[in-house]
Computed example of a mutant assay.
Amino acid sequence: MFTGIIQAKVKIKHIVKQTGLWQFAMEFGDELRENLNHGASVAHNGVCLTVAKQDQQAVYFDVMQETLAVTNLADCCAGDVVNIERALKFGDELGGHVLSGHVHATATLVSRVANESNSTLRFECDAGWMKYILPKGFISIDGASLTLGKVGTNWFEVYLIPETRVLTTLDEKAVGSRYNIEIDSQTQAIVDTVERVLAAKNIS
């Protein structure tokens, strides 16, 4: 599990691409490597990946074809920077909201309005996910826990404070870029439950 509080922005050292499997070599610093064991879970742009191996040069993560098909990790190249969060440990402060690291879809950045102190990002995503995206609700974007602002038919906005702009890559990508989104599990459960109840009433 994760909290959506990004711990570091980390550069991709290199990517080895094989059929159906890519391996990311990540330039983790000493702090991120502390007590990092083989098999540990680490979120990359909100995607839960498992430590495959590590050496003095890098920490390595395997990315399967299904993950590449659903997330923006398929857009990454050597030298790109991604948001990193290590798995939540018992006793850690839950500063954001609970995340699984299982990305539901990607959203496309369609506009950015920024000034010296903050920025507003507007995204478009598949209309099928919009029923779970509600004003003042939670969403994870590239692994960062954010509160939703305005919501339209197929778009939504989030607002970035200075701290978020500095500590994440959210405000560094060009318009047209894809971002990973994980919707709030509690919101999804409530919406799906209400839909089932209403459908059952209509049938009866």
Rank of each mutant, 00 (worst) to 15 (best):
F2N: 00
F2A: 08
T3W: 05
G4P: 00
Q7K: 07
Q7W: 04
V10Y: 02
I12K: 02
K13P: 00
H14I: 01
I15Y: 12
I15A: 09
V16I: 14
K17W: 03
K17E: 13
Q18D: 11
Q18F: 05
Q23E: 12
Q23S: 06
A25H: 13
F28H: 02
E31D: 13
E34V: 09
L36A: 13
N37A: 13
N37K: 12
H38L: 14
H38F: 11
G39L: 11
V42C: 07
V42H: 09
A43D: 04
N45T: 03
G46H: 10
V47W: 00
V47K: 00
C48E: 09
C48D: 07
T50D: 09
T50V: 10
V51F: 12
A52D: 12
D55H: 08
Q56E: 15
Q57T: 12
Q57C: 06
F61G: 00
F61C: 03
V63N: 01
M64G: 04
M64H: 03
E66P: 00
T67W: 05
V70E: 10
V70Y: 04
N72E: 13
N72I: 11
L73V: 12
A74W: 09
C76H: 09
D80I: 02
V81C: 05
V82F: 13
V82T: 07
N83R: 05
R86E: 03
K89Q: 12
F90H: 11
F90D: 04
E93Y: 02
L94N: 00
L94I: 15
G95V: 11
G95M: 06
H97D: 05
H97W: 02
H97S: 04
L99T: 01
S100D: 05
G101T: 04
G101W: 05
G101L: 03
H104Q: 14
T106P: 15
A107L: 06
A107C: 15
T108S: 08
L109E: 08
S111D: 15
R112K: 14
N115W: 07
N115R: 15
E116M: 09
E116P: 00
N118E: 15
N118K: 14
R122Q: 15
E124P: 00
W129F: 14
M130V: 10
M130R: 06
M130G: 10
K131M: 06
K131A: 11
Y132K: 01
Y132T: 03
Y132I: 11
I133L: 11
F138V: 08
I139W: 01
D142T: 11
G143N: 05
G143W: 08
G143Q: 04
T147H: 09
T147D: 04
L148P: 00
K150I: 09
K150N: 12
K150H: 09
V151M: 08
V151E: 09
G152I: 02
T153E: 14
W155E: 06
V158L: 05
L160W: 01
P162M: 14
T164D: 12
R165V: 02
R165D: 02
V166A: 09
L170Q: 07
K173Y: 08
A174H: 08
G176W: 06
R178K: 14
Y179F: 15
Y179G: 06
Y179T: 05
I183Y: 00
D184P: 02
D184Q: 08
Q188K: 15
A189T: 14
A189V: 07
V191C: 08
L198N: 11
A200E: 13
